[in-house]
Computed example of a mutant assay.
Amino acid sequence: MFHFLGGQYHGRFEATYRAFPLAFIDKQSAEYGDKVILPPSALDRLASLHIEYPMLFKVVNNSTGRSTHCSVLEFVAQEGHVYLPRWMMANLLLTEGQPVSFANVSLPKGTYVKLQPVTSDFLDISNPKAVLERTLRSYSCLTVGDCFVVHYNNKDYEIEVRSCKPGEAISIIETDCQVDFEAPKDYKEPTYTPAAAAAAPPAAAAGAGASNGAAAAGAAGGSAAAAAEPEEEEGPKFVPFVGTGRRLDGKPASSSSGPPAASAAAAAAAARAAAAAGAGSSSGSGGGGSAVTGGAKPGTFVSSGNRLADKLALDKLKAQGKAPAPPPAEEEKPDEGLAFKPFEGKGRSLKG
């Protein structure tokens, strides 16, 4: 049931109704707004009072003391009933059929409002300002503490009213209102992890410093032993200039023969290696240009270096009696019967 307090002399409307959601009268389009549906008797009473338009009401749940503000959409409800949007019933903590009080009020025009999305997925909207402006066209007033609903792209977003100016409740009809936003309630600042420090922590560094002396001594002895050990054999590598040579005269090519410059360069390189190592005996290089200096791996290029420096090093070794042995002379091989011999044969004259 409902009752009226006051009258035309006081110009105030007060009534109590039983609250039901808008779904009971198939008014789903009014869910996204702050407009309620009152019975026709309320219109008759309001018409007889001197009230300000548009009609705005304060709605109070007397059992919990929670309150909000709204406007009216139609006067077609069943007598004694009022139909409210779901979000408004949730803010007032109302259940179906619970009594709720209505009273007409006059609210100041708002100049400032601060809003806060309840969930951070509201930030995924491409143009939240335009969506919010379109949504607020369905609202007549805002109250601090209310959570109204923004419907966009088949999804509902809850927005809480954090503060209003010039009062706790404002009218947003035909007014220029500045809107500010707070970060969503479940928003978390991104954490930036710094790059891992190259240096060890102070405690670990102190412990490591205590063992550095013994480790350094062991490392010095170990490095000398490791230098003396032969290098492990590696897998097959690329070997350049592999193949057999053929001579124009048909004789078999000698693998030991090589150009004199290459033999001299190899001998000089061997001399430099012997001088650096301080070897007592001369290190011979057999097979001419195919000798490999000490420390070089098979299949790698060996640079002959500066020829003047090679000559000086070779002269110094000769003066010390440590000159490398000269490469052996190439042995002449007997001619083979079937070898190719160019320009051989008998000449004949055209005169006979």
Rank of each mutant, 00 (worst) to 15 (best):
M1P: 06
F2Q: 14
F2K: 15
F2R: 04
F4N: 11
G7I: 08
Y9R: 08
E14L: 08
A15G: 06
A19L: 02
L22H: 02
L22C: 03
S29V: 08
K35M: 01
V36A: 00
V36L: 13
P40C: 03
P40T: 00
P40K: 04
S41C: 02
L43A: 11
S48V: 08
E52W: 01
Y53Q: 11
P54N: 04
V59S: 00
V60K: 12
V60N: 00
T68N: 06
L73E: 01
E74K: 08
E74A: 02
H81W: 02
R86Q: 13
M89R: 07
A90H: 09
N91F: 02
L93V: 10
T95R: 07
T95I: 06
G97D: 02
N104I: 00
N104G: 01
K109E: 10
T111Q: 10
F122L: 04
F122Y: 11
F122T: 01
S126W: 09
S126E: 14
K129H: 10
K129R: 12
A130W: 09
E133L: 10
E133W: 05
R137T: 08
S138W: 01
L142V: 02
T143E: 05
V144E: 15
D146R: 02
Y152V: 07
K155I: 08
Y157W: 01
E158H: 07
E160P: 00
S163D: 09
C164Q: 01
K165G: 09
E174N: 15
E174I: 03
T175H: 05
D176W: 06
Q178G: 07
F181A: 02
P184L: 02
K185M: 15
P190G: 04
T191P: 01
P194I: 04
A196W: 07
A200G: 05
P201H: 06
P202V: 04
A203H: 11
A205S: 08
G207L: 13
G207W: 03
G207V: 10
A208T: 14
G209C: 07
S211T: 11
A216E: 10
A217T: 12
G218I: 00
A227Q: 04
A228Q: 11
E229L: 08
P230E: 14
E234Q: 15
K237H: 07
P240E: 12
G245T: 12
D249N: 13
K251Q: 10
K251E: 12
K251I: 03
P252N: 14
S254Y: 06
S255A: 09
S257V: 14
P259K: 03
P260K: 13
A262G: 09
A268H: 13
A270M: 14
A271S: 14
A274C: 08
G278V: 03
A279Y: 11
A279Q: 11
A279S: 15
S281M: 13
S281E: 13
G284P: 11
S285V: 12
G286H: 09
G288V: 02
G288K: 03
G289R: 11
G289N: 14
S290Q: 12
V292A: 10
P298D: 03
T300I: 06
T300W: 03
N306G: 04
R307Q: 09
A309R: 09
D315Q: 13
K316L: 13
P324C: 03
P326L: 07
E332K: 14
D335E: 13
E336I: 12
F340V: 14
K341M: 05
S349P: 00
S349H: 09
K351M: 06
G352L: 06
